[in-house]
């Protein structure tokens, strides 16, 4: 049983000509896999390495360099919520927002709710200081958020995107 779907394998293979060598496809491949499976498992790493003619450790090396990728023991929830912690947001109550959310959900940044609904993350500046405090729900920016709005995301089907 292959850890990667035929579509993802094909997509990785279709990238072959784009870069000077196959190792350069490591990062796009990791993104594809994480997007599809919410994590990059050991089997997936082995298969990526196989497709790119690398040793699995070379893929792990790149993957662990970036905090963005998750292994199979720490998969992402359905929603990945990034709370901005840069200066503007901090001044506008971002810190308190994050502390309250952590407290109410019994989570630390980086952790996922037990039901797998939401993963809480810290973000360095999201570039939306005019809407501080702001959050990013997966790829969608939300401005001037309050605690309840974030907590709603932790509930099934909550929030603007599931």
């Amino acid at each position: 049983m292959s850890a990667l779907s035929p579509e993802i394998r094909e997509k990785i293979i279709s990238y072959y000509g784009r870069y000077p060598n196959k190792q350069a496809i490591t990062l796009p491949a990791l993104h594809m896999v994480q997007e599809a499976y919410n994590c990059v498992s050991r089997e997936a790493i082995n298969e990526i390495a196989d497709l790119l003619e690398l040793n699995p450790t070379q893929v792990v090396d790149t993957m662990t360099f970036y905090g963005f990728f998750r292994d199979e023991h720490h998969p992402l929830g359905k929603k990945r919520v990034w709370v901005c912690r840069s200066l503007s947001c901090m001044l506008r109550g971002g810190d308190e927002l994050l502390a309250e959310v952590c407290d109410r959900l019994h989570l630390r940044p980086g952790q996922t709710t037990p039901d797998g609904e939401m993963t809480l993350e810290l973000a360095e500046c999201l570039g939306a200081c005019d809407g501080a405090p702001c959050i990013l729900i997966n790829d969608e920016l939300q401005l001037k958020v309050g605690v309840e709005e974030v907590l709603a995301l932790a509930k099934p089907q909550g929030g603007s995107k599931s």
Binding site: R42, N55, P56, T57, Q58, V60, D61, T64, F65
Partner: peptide
């Protein structure tokens, strides 16, 4: 291990102040 033995067992995990040499 990557360039000479080619066996590539060793790698660097994480980065910055928490990076370490590791094996799978």
């Amino acid at each position: 291990t990557r360039e000479y033995s080619g066996t590539a067992e060793l790698f660097v995990t994480s980065r910055g102040s928490v990076e370490e040499i590791e094996v799978l």
